[in-house]
């Protein structure tokens, strides 16, 4: 599974992407975030306020209950500010 980070989330995480292999109990986006934040303090600080974070799975906006599977591209980013 590929994780992508953008804008201040990328800066805080210190990387723009990483490949991860979470256990099979990680079935949806919320499970994935719970698993990510347990790894280290940088991750838990970055994801401390989920109201400031948007999620896309395979380049489509999704909610926290959206299912995920191996091979998915999961992106975390702040609300967009283009235009």
């Amino acid at each position: 599974m590929k994780l992508l980070y953008f804008a201040w989330i990328r800066v805080k995480m210190g990387t723009s992407n990483e490949s991860v292999d979470p256990p099979s109990t990680v079935e949806n986006v919320q499970n994935l975030i719970d698993w990510i934040v347990r790894r280290n303090s940088v991750s838990s600080e970055t994801f401390s306020d989920l109201t400031t974070i948007r999620v896309a799975v395979n380049q489509e906006y999704v909610g926290l209950d959206h299912p995920i599977k191996p091979g998915d591209e999961v992106a975390f980013f702040p609300p967009v500010t283009g235009g």
Binding site: F6, V80, T81, G82
Partner: peptide, 21 residues
Amino acid sequence: KTKAPFWKLEETRDGGHWVEA
């Protein structure tokens, strides 16, 4: 403006800061 995944980083005298939605 609300859907396309772009983010603006503004440079000011105090350094860079991310524009909030």
